[in-house]
């Protein structure tokens, strides 16, 4: 038998495309092969490694970013597809220091190894922007695409609830 390695079907002669997008409020232009994902583009070309890669197939949520304000798995979006769009990463959320949500993650003891946390924070922020007063079932539903292997999840639920309460007081 003859075999070759199990490797994704990337094309070696993929042309470089120039992509202009807005990342955390500033315009960025990068040159990437067409098969590169937005996740790769953000981490490797834009230089923002806060967004994490785990499964690379849309199952774990570690790579979650806001694309035109909506939470997406950046591993499932091609970088070229983001041309002309607006991306917010975890770094963008915390540009002026930790947000109330990030503080509540810490207060609740929701952060262990931290690898899933940028994705959790972005997903939770999206939830709170679209539903400022979610109940527990809605929180679990909204975050069900974000895996955490360290924690029991309920501290993250509490962090989101505490943030919602804080924001409603403002």
């Amino acid at each position: 038998m003859t075999s070759t390695a199990r490797i994704p079907d990337h094309l070696d002669d993929d042309p470089l495309e120039t992509v202009t997008l807005t990342v955390n409020g500033s315009q960025r232009t990068v040159a990437v092969p067409t098969h590169r994902t937005l996740l790769d583009g953000l981490r490797d070309e834009v230089g923002l490694p806060g967004t994490k890669s785990c499964c690379a197939e849309g199952e774990c949520g570690a790579c979650t970013v806001l694309l035109d304000g909506r939470a997406v798995n950046s591993c499932l979006v091609l970088c070229v597809e983001a041309e002309g769009h607006e991306v917010t990463t975890v770094e963008g959320l915390s540009a002026d220091g930790l947000t109330d949500l990030q503080e509540e993650f810490l207060n609740a003891g929701a952060v262990q190894c931290g690898f899933c946390i940028p994705g959790q924070v972005v997903s939770a922020e999206y939830l709170l922007r679209t539903n400022p007063d979610p109940d527990e079932a809605q929180i679990r539903e909204a975050l069900s695409g974000n895996l955490c292997r360290c924690a029991g999840y309920q501290r993250i639920v509490r962090a989101v609830q505490a943030t919602a309460a804080r924001r409603s007081e403002r």
Partner: peptide, 11 residues
């Protein structure tokens, strides 16, 4: 609160 926790939430 967790040592280094801020960096773990901010990316």
């Amino acid at each position: 609160l967790r040592y280094g926790g801020g960096d773990r939430t901010s990316g």
